[in-house]
Write a protein that binds this DNA or RNA. Structure first.
Length: 246
DNA sequence: GTTGAGCGTT
């Protein structure tokens, strides 16, 4: 079993980290350990995995105890075919805590030199695993396939939508009406009344005061309710005459 | 079930 990476970084003070690139997504630390342990003392192997799916990211870190062994592994395993994939072994440049690595060895002392080595790709990191799905910056081949599939789905959806347009019409109309309503209201206040009157007949304050809705005498005390409804009425009744001189 | 430049965990 792989006890690597189970308890975090064990002791990286005197270890030499190697970066293994281009490994298969199914390759695990158990598969790399025997291969790398043959050339030296491997103290730790870590494979960055996806937080959600737990899948391998396609690269691994192998820490050796001695530099000469690490160098030997680089020379021997670089370009080796593992799991049907040609891996690339090289000394790690960056440390786990963004510390600089000197010749693959972790150096806690950060030199005051310029961080030119980080200009590789500081904008994108493996952290945005769920964001990379939405971005089509890399994996052009897959993007193309997905794009085609998306187009297909769009077409299908469009067709279905059309068929259902008769039933989905009210919703769309309602939504659009609301949007337009807001837009018109924002455009001009005076127009809002004209536009709001028709659909807002139910909410219209006039309707409440309208004699048509005369409450039955058996309803209780109409006077009391009238007062209650009239209380907030003045507020709405105030702007009844927006433009007397317009 | 897919992909493929790159730099890391408790």
């Amino acid at each position: 079993m792989s006890h690597f990476g189970r308890s975090g970084p064990p002791d990286i003070a005197d270890t030499y980290s190697l970066l293994i690139l281009n490994i298969s997504f199914r390759t695990s630390a158990d598969d790399l350990f025997p291969l790398f342990d043959k050339y030296g003392k491997v103290v730790d192997i870590f494979i960055p995995r996806d937080r959600r799916t737990g899948e391998s990211r396609g690269f691994a870190f192998v820490r050796y105890k001695y530099q000469d062994e690490a160098q030997k592994a680089v020379d021997k395993l670089d370009g080796e075919v593992v799991d049907g994939r040609e891996i690339a072994v090289q000394f790690a440049k960056y440390g786990p805590n963004a510390e600089r690595i000197h010749k693959g060895r972790v150096s806690e002392k950060v030199p005051r030199g310029r961080g030119r080595s980080r200009s590789r790709s500081p904008r994108r990191r493996y952290r945005d695993d769920y964001h990379r799905e939405h971005r089509r910056s890399r994996s052009r081949s897959r993007t193309r396939e997905m794009y085609e599939r998306d187009r297909h789905h769009e077409r299908k959806r469009g067709h279905r939508y059309r068929s259902r347009s008769y039933s989905a019409s009210p919703d769309h109309d309602r939504y659009r009406g609301r949007g337009r309503h807001v837009y018109e209201r924002r455009r001009s206040r005076s127009r809002s009344f004209e536009s709001a009157s028709p659909p807002r007949r139910r909410s219209s304050p006039y309707r409440s005061l309208s004699p048509r809705r005369t409450p039955s005498p058996r309803d209780g005390s109409p006077e009391k309710r009238s007062r209650h409804e009239q209380s907030p009425s003045p507020k709405s009744s105030k702007p009844v005459s927006p433009e007397p001189s317009y």
